[in-house]
Design a protein around this nucleic acid. Structure first.
Length: 170
DNA sequence: GCGACAG
DNA sequence: ATCTTGTCGC
């Protein structure tokens, strides 16, 4: 079935898996995907249900080479992906409004590579950028649709929490 | 040469 | 990312 931000019924969790493996590379700005993707692919191999859309903790095309971790992972998986980063890596933008939902474009010269979204009042905005096989408009619609009362959309927030040490219930 | 720099 | 301190909301 082909879902739509407006008709998606709920945000219920379908499946959860955790995959860990040693890092092979240090963190180098601009090369994050080479450090994170090997483990990410391992996690996807453990899934019994393949997602139809993936939200990644990092940049999509808002990257010097337009290949942030979300864009890069989307290519490997051949799935639509959206990058939602907690801070800026690349691009310029104006000040964002202070109201929840306010946003401004993120530019790389004349090109729009993403959006800076105030996902929650009084909190630093998030950087949303298309990853693979999706437009910025659709990316924004899904991110807004998945926002709870927190800064990060539920998929990213829950995944991050699941990976943390204090959520290793069985 | 200097500063910036996802997680 | 990780660490630490203080504050806020349910």
């Amino acid at each position: 079935m082909k879902w739509d931000p407006a008709t998606a019924p709920d945000l219920s969790v379908v499946e959860r898996v955790v995959h860990r493996e040693p890092t092979r590379m240090p963190y180098i700005p601009g090369l994050l995907s080479f450090r994170e993707i090997p483990a990410a692919l391992g996690a996807f191999e453990k899934l019994s249900v393949m997602p139809e859309l993936v939200m990644v903790d990092g940049q999509g095309i808002a990257h010097p080479r337009r290949l942030g971790v979300a864009a890069h992972l989307g290519l490997w998986l051949d799935l639509p992906t959206i990058g939602i980063a907690k801070s800026r890596l690349y691009g310029q933008h104006a000040e964002v409004g202070e109201q929840r939902g306010d946003w401004v474009p993120l530019y790389a010269g004349p090109e729009t590579i993403g959006a800076v979204l105030r996902s929650r009042a009084k909190v630093k905005p998030v950087y949303v950028s298309p990853g693979h096989r999706i437009t910025l408009e659709t990316s924004m619609a899904w991110v807004m649709r998945c926002l709870g009362r927190t800064k990060l959309p539920e998929p990213t927030r829950l995944a991050d929490r699941l990976a943390s040490r204090r959520d290793q219930r069985k």
